[in-house]
């Protein structure tokens, strides 16, 4: 398995380099100049030229490319952000952990809620619960994340009658956080992450629940399940010990495929809930034509997707002993 992982990681390098190259030339091909965000008639042309020099924009495109790739590969250096006026690396290092935190919790919600509802719906096939979850899952699955976010904001964060049970934005209570005890700080973080994580996780959970239900129904019709039942095993043991493990195999593949959707979902959700992560950095970079930031964000998201898929493949082998990674 080790050689498989190493090989996959090595394959990822040209993949990411290709991604970086395509992005680099695409964004430079777009019309407009990044220094146009300083659309100020009082700005001296020399000052503008200096900005272009500082950000390397005065060099031929080929030189800019080689410099950029060399910086990324050799020094993990992504250049300076023209809009944020700071090294891109600093911005990324602040934002990335926040997005990982949010994505991890969203993934947890997606899996626990999705799998739990899927199992219940399967074992109570054609019951009211099954019908209700079918409708609910379809509703959540078809709802765009920004809309679901706004609905949750209105319901729980002060939109109705000016009452709010949960905070509408950010990671912490910026006024009181400093004076809180350790436990309170944890609670504070939890209540802040809840709405964005639910927004991000519920839609995906809806899909997982349907897949889970379908897979489990498929599995419990298999001969070995019938055999298990015939041997007198309880329903619980049959479902959880024999049925679930087999039904989970395709779910892991689906989770692996859903990772890109999850990461791209952060772009919207972080904007709605002012979550200070990579999604917001991405939006700002795109609107402000912040070349260095834009390229770095794409590279990081690309890396996250590649790594996510690798983890999914490994988990696949763990769950299904028939699969050998080689």
């Amino acid at each position: 398995m080790h050689s498989y992982i190493i090989r996959r990681l090595l394959i990822a390098i040209p993949l990411l380099l290709g991604l970086l190259t395509v992005n680099f030339f695409l964004i430079h091909a777009a019309p407009g100049d990044p220094t146009d965000i300083f659309y100020n008639p009082d700005m001296d042309p020399e000052a503008r030229e200096n900005l272009r020099r500082i950000y390397g924009l005065d060099q031929p495109l080929g030189v800019q490319y080689v410099r950029y790739v060399r910086g990324v590969l050799l020094e993990f250096e992504f250049g300076y952000s023209i809009a944020k006026k700071r090294p891109v690396r600093d911005e990324i290092l602040e934002a990335l952990p926040n997005t990982l935190q949010l994505s991890a919790l969203a993934l947890l919600i997606e899996l626990t809620v999705g799998i739990a509802i899927g199992i219940l719906a399967a074992v109570r096939q054609r019951s009211t619960f099954d019908n209700l979850t079918r409708v609910t899952a379809l509703t959540f699955y078809s709802m765009p994340s920004f809309y679901l976010g706004l609905v949750l904001l209105f319901l729980f964060a002060g939109g109705v009658s000016a009452t709010h049970w949960l905070p509408a934005s950010g990671m912490i209570d910026i006024v009181r956080h400093e004076s809180m005890s350790g436990l309170e700080k944890m609670g504070d973080r939890l209540v802040h992450i809840l709405l964005p994580a639910l927004t991000l996780g519920l839609g995906a959970a809806a899909a997982i629940s349907r897949y889970m239900r379908g897979e489990l129904l498929e599995v419990i019709r298999q001969d070995y399940i019938r055999t298990a039942k015939a041997k007198g095993l309880s329903e619980k043991v049959v479902v959880f010990k024999h049925g679930l493990r087999n039904a989970l195999i395709p779910i892991i593949t689906i989770v692996g495929l859903s990772l890109p959707v999850l990461f791209s979902g952060t772009v919207i959700v972080e904007q709605v809930f002012a979550w200070p992560g990579m999604g917001r950095v991405a939006v700002d970079a795109a609107f402000q034509r912040d070349y260095s930031m834009f390229l770095a964000v794409n590279l990081i998201f690309g890396t996250m997707v590649v790594m996510g898929n690798l983890v999914a493949d490994i988990l696949y082998a763990v769950v299904d002993p028939r699969v050998r990674l080689s």
Binding site: G158, F273, A274, V283
Partner: peptide, 22 residues
């Protein structure tokens, strides 16, 4: 004592926070 400038890049969200005292 303190002034905190809270960044919320969404107008609807800002209005909700204003109404609810956030």
């Amino acid at each position: 004592d303190r002034i905190l400038f809270k960044v919320v890049p969404d107008q609807e969200n800002l209005v909700i926070q204003l109404r609810s005292g956030q």
